[in-house]
Design a protein around this nucleic acid. Structure first.
Lengths: 347, 347
DNA sequence: GTTCGATGGCAACCATTCTCGATGTGGCCC
DNA sequence: GGGCCACATCGAGAATGGTTGCCATCGAAC
């Protein structure tokens, strides 16, 4: 690979001048500029980002750690981050890490990202690395948390109004006449699940409907396990069975839907399903899911805005927490649509 | 930030020794090693990956460019790549880029990845940058293509047997008695779509069924457009309507399913849908999709293997093309299951 | 005393950026 | 016309933070 020195020699100038031509950081007479550009062209020179980063102590890469890129919520979020970056900050890139909600994996990821000298970090904390993160923040690394917050860690965050969303979804269920409402609770350290539960409880109590603890089950955040747990919740005589289930995340929803098929029940006739978190790729299927949609893409964008704001202004302004609105998508899985399941109407 | 020099001073040794302790690249007496480690601890020293990369001319990051992380096929693939890397090559990371099948965006991505001095590149080419890529390969950058191949570019590749998969899926349709089979053809430069079409045609001709060109429509690879095109294909009097549709990728499938709902048809009774590419998150929905599943995750892993093989051996061995098997997932959307749509059996 | 193995230091090197400062040129004033 | 100053342009070389080849030193063994 040709270096800047090769270019300089060929153009008969110093490396400084070449550098300034490349970065447009100083006026250079048109003639020399021309010579430099020709030399660059001739040698197929491409500047070395590593040496550049070393000297400037900025790498132009930002770290993004999420729990699982395979989860539509996160892939949407990642996409939002990427698009915002290439649109507003052309010279930056994204290093991606998955943690699977594993504290140790997260710790290692952050560690290697730090070693790679990322300019900033966007991440959905799994929890358990609070000290590492706050240490990192006091060191001046710009950090913004997405989707979840770490208790006791002062940093920018972009969140979603989980309580409100869950409240709304539960109210929808109650409005349709459901009283025995079950809950599929994801077993995550992330506080968002708790908040959703609070929203659920608030809506129930506002409607004067008692919460039946027997209808609340907890499951690992993984499809197969969730399916089993879901089955245990609905494989009961119909009087004991919930008439509707509130699923606290994607995995819970999918598990429940699969369990319903397994148990040969009908949704929404035998059991209604309401999910927190939408499943974009399932729009073509029946029954279409009634769910709380999170603005994942937008969350990614906002995260980038917060991050770059902090990167430029330094640690001057206090941490900002942005809370985004959810949207209730009323579709079919709770039986709300008047036009009953479309596919059957022409039968 | 403390540098290696600070550590050296505090431990009373040279920077060389500190470096050797960190990298275990030379024997160091237990006592000095101890002193060094203590100094590292005390100063919260973390080695600078950038300086390190500069000196060693290896960055420990590999570039991954796909068209859209939001597409389950790619997120699965990305996950496979990531897992393989952290399992087998702990010190490496992934820089992710999305291209949206846009040639120019792809060119820019590759360009900045090169500037970042990636150790290797895994990518699903959109097409149009052949010269850039082959130039890059002759320069010695390890490259492996996934999902698609670039005509005229000699490089490692991990592909899927598109012809065979499409053949199998079509044969399945034919076996169920379908004769008027439509095709939703994705408008991509990627050769994979062509191959799938070939497989389709081969199966048809093998069965002695003529292909009706009127039933083959082409759509942009995007959901809303695909829905419109799909609607135009099926919104016909039933005699002119295909009895089954072969969808050449995810977007086509989803568009078709949505169009079916719009047009108030029933799947599979009125029209059968067979998709190339599975939709993992839709397992809980009805009708469950009969589709050709691609081993996306595994493709990512194989890609990593090929890449690291090339990275270590250099350009010595000839490019290797690995072709992975697809799997026909017979579910409900083609009406093949004897147990007719489960949800209705208890009605 | 010589040789050899075990340790560890010196200093070059990686490819840039960036701070000074050097050089030249033209205008202006006396 | 000579001297001085301002301005425009560019170069030399330090600095960035590590890695690594080569050499020096020190005991112990022969």
């Amino acid at each position: 690979m040709a270096t800047i020195l090769d270019v300089a020699r060929r153009a008969g100038v110093s490396t400084a001048t070449v550098s300034h031509v490349i970065n447009e950081s100083r006026v250079v007479t048109p003639e020399t500029k021309q010579r430099v550009l020709e030399a660059i062209e001739a040698l197929h020179y491409r500047r070395d980002g590593i040496a550049r980063s070393l000297r400037r102590s900025r790498t132009g890469t930002i770290g993004l750690v999420v729990s699982d890129i395979t989860n539509p919520f996160f892939s949407e979020l990642v996409r939002g981050v990427e698009d915002a970056i290439i649109e507003k900050h052309r010279d930056s890139n994204l290093i991606l890490c998955n943690t699977d909600e594993d504290t140790e994996k997260e710790r290692r990821s952050v560690e290697t990202l730090l070693e790679k000298r990322i300019d900033g970090l966007i991440f959905a904390p799994a929890g358990g690395n609070e000290s590492q993160i706050s240490h990192l923040i006091t060191r001046g690394v710009p950090v913004v948390m997405v989707d979840r917050r770490l208790p006791g860690v002062e940093a920018d965050a972009v969140l979603v109004d989980n309580v409100q969303g869950a409240y709304e979804l539960t109210a929808h269920l109650l409005g349709l006449g459901h009283r025995r409402i079950g809950v599929m609770r994801a077993d995550l350290r992330a506080g968002s699940i708790e908040e959703r539960l609070h929203g659920f409880e608030a809506a129930m109590s506002a409607a004067g409907v008692p919460v039946d603890p027997a209808l609340i089950v907890t499951s690992p955040s993984e499809v197969d396990e969730a399916t089993r747990v879901a089955a245990s919740l609905i494989a009961r005589p119909s009087v004991q069975r919930p008439s509707a289930v509130f699923c606290t995340n994607n995995f819970m929803t999918l598990g429940m839907l699969r369990a319903i098929v397994q148990e040969r029940l009908r949704c929404p006739q035998d059991i209604a399903v309401a999910g927190f978190d939408d499943l974009p790729w399932a729009l073509g299927f029946h029954p279409q899911l009634t769910a709380i949609a999170q603005p994942a893409y937008q969350m990614g964008q906002v995260a980038v805005d917060l991050l770059f704001a902090r990167m430029s202004e330094g640690a001057t302004h206090p941490p900002e927490q942005r809370k985004l609105e959810t949207r209730l998508m009323v579709r079919e899985s709770c039986g709300a649509t008047l036009v009953q399941p479309l596919a059957r109407s022409t039968a």
